[in-house]
Design a binder for these strands. Structure first.
Length: 510
DNA sequence: TTTGGCGTTAAAGCA
DNA sequence: TGCTTTCCACGCCAAA
């Protein structure tokens, strides 16, 4: 077969890459000196822990040429063309990588964890820890209530009993939702006023902006997974002892911003990651690979999974508002819908009734859907919440009784009532600008509080019942604005906040 | 109606 | 300490 004909642009670009490679090789010594200097400066920030890149993979920002990225699609190339290595286009590239090339994260297949690993010390400790946890039965204590409800619904559904008879569900005209409001849910199980930030619970886990952060859902080890805009994913074992280094392990198995991280409580060794590069990968610690689950031409902006369907991956793809359901067993789409007019920023499911899905979009809306009645021809939502600007998140409360939305129009919306017909819009300044990831208000461990970033280097706590911000968590240790959060699924009061500088701050309650 | 450029914004890096 | 660079968010507005 004849080699593909290159366009003028592509020829020029390849030539640029070749020149850049030569230049970077020549600058090897210089860059090493500048990195050492940078490392020294990092100490000054006062972070007790920070990620360490292996010498051949340290960031050589000032020397690395930045090539403007164009998507494969806009270049008229298929995603598996293998023609151009994206890795040269990010600052996370070093001179010596040229002489010892590693597989590009864009490889169309499994990528070994060893090849994707960017650290100095062995990652054996991490893999062993995950495999150890995997074998240990995990008990979810803090959100037992949520899962009890979920299990109750599932149990009754499998018994063939209709939603109308599910225990505790209010019988009225809105029963299609299968969701009940319980005022007791608004009682708090955590004293947010006692939440504090300890110095040892701070680390710089990644270079660059953190796009997504997750706790590994287990009781025994406090493990954080974070993804940045360069396609790195870091693991931070907060319980790691000194002899194992800082407990931070850095990989790069994607080539663009990480848009989603999914950890499963039922199988801790498998962690899904989605990326703007259109790839969806699955870390398999047993096989020590990052498997390729899906690859498409368009960016993946959001990723989620239904609580009762571990084989289906729900992800928002492209700027056209597409939502795909990917069946991992068959390796095919179960469904492909256009649900919005612009990118889908978040996907979430109701714990009481996993058929109810919430999406938020840059088109300015958050929508509720009943998965049983969505069809490809005419996607009709159960409810549309209109914001005046882009909506960055729409998350159900742990009990499923409320929905919280965060929008660029400087509001946090709280929807409640039997049919989510009660809408409250709470003013919250959400203008993060270009360099910070947009804020997303997340629920804590019950229906009482929503946690969201504050431009004054704090974490605002919004009371659901009072429909207002009641507290801002602040600390002298916090030197940057936390944008993305995760509440530990098993440890009440443990909240991770991630910044644009790669730091993670973990708040705990006393 | 579509497209493209600009302004906004925080923080790391460097002189 | 202060300036420069970053540059995949997004609204706004003018030009095409």
């Amino acid at each position: 077969m004849a080699p593909p004909k290159l366009t003028e642009y592509e020829k020029k670009r390849l030539e640029n890459i070749r020149r850049n490679d030569q230049m970077m090789a020549a600058l090897k010594i210089h860059s090493t000196v500048s990195q050492l200097s940078a490392a020294t400066k990092r100490q000054k920030v006062g972070l007790s822990k920070s990620y360490k890149l292996s010498p051949e993979k340290k960031v050589a920002k000032s020397q690395s040429p930045i090539v403007i990225r164009r998507s494969l699609r806009t270049r008229g190339m298929p995603p598996d063309s293998g023609g151009l290595d994206y890795s040269v286009e990010t600052p996370d590239r070093s001179p010596t990588r040229i002489s010892k090339p590693r597989p590009s994260p864009r490889v169309m297949g499994p990528l070994s964890m060893r090849d994707a690993y960017s650290g100095t010390e062995s990652d054996r400790a991490l893999i062993d820890t995950i495999l150890f946890l995997e074998k240990k039965p995990q008990v979810d204590v803090s959100i037992k209530k949520k899962f009890d409800r979920c299990e109750a619904v599932k149990m009754e559904q499998s018994d063939g009993i209709s939603h109308d008879s599910v225990k505790g569900v209010v019988k009225d005209e809105y029963l299609d939702y299968g969701i009940k409001i319980d005022d007791k849910e608004t009682e708090s199980c955590v004293d947010v006023w006692s939440m504090g930030l300890k110095k040892e619970n701070i680390a710089r886990v990644l270079p660059g902006r953190i796009m997504a952060v997750r706790f590994l859902p287990c009781n025994d080890v406090r493990m954080i997974v974070a993804g940045n805009k360069f396609g790195n994913v870091a693991f931070w074992n907060m319980d790691s002892k000194g002899e194992e280094g800082d407990g931070i392990f850095l990989y790069r198995h994607h080539t663009g911003p990480i848009s989603g991280i999914l950890c499963q409580q039922s199988c801790l060794s498998k962690i899904y990651t989605s990326c703007y590069d259109g790839f969806l990968r699955l870390m398999n610690a047993e096989k020590e690979v990052f498997d390729l689950v899906y690859s498409g031409d368009d960016a993946i902006f959001s990723l989620s999974q239904r609580p009762n369907d571990m084989n289906g991956l729900y992800f928002g793809e492209g700027r056209g508002g597409g939502l795909n359901i990917w069946d991992e067993r068959t390796g095919r789409f179960s469904s492909q819908w256009i649900l919005h007019e612009d990118r889908i920023n978040s996907i979430d499911f109701n714990s009481q009734n996993p058929n109810i899905m919430a999406t938020s979009s840059t088109d300015g809306t958050a929508c509720l859907w009943d998965l049983r009645s969505v069809n490809a021809d005419k996607a009709k939502s159960l409810k549309i919440l209109n914001h005046n600007r882009a909506v960055h998140s729409a998350y159900f409360s742990p009990s499923g009784s409320f929905l919280a939305t965060t929008s660029a129009d400087n509001t946090v919306g709280i929807l409640g009532g039997v049919n989510f017909e009660d809408t409250s819009m709470i003013y919250h300044y959400n203008q993060t600008g270009r360099w910070l990831s947009p804020f997303r208000g997340i629920w804590g461990w019950d229906d009482s509080s929503i946690f969201i970033g504050n431009m004054k280097r704090g974490v605002d706590v919004i009371s659901c019942s009072q429909r207002r911000s009641i507290l801002t968590l602040q600390s002298s240790h916090m030197s940057a604005i936390p944008c993305r959060f995760d509440a530990h699924p098993c440890k009440v009061g443990m909240l991770a906040g991630a910044t644009t500088g790669g730091q993670v701050y973990v708040w705990t309650s006393s």
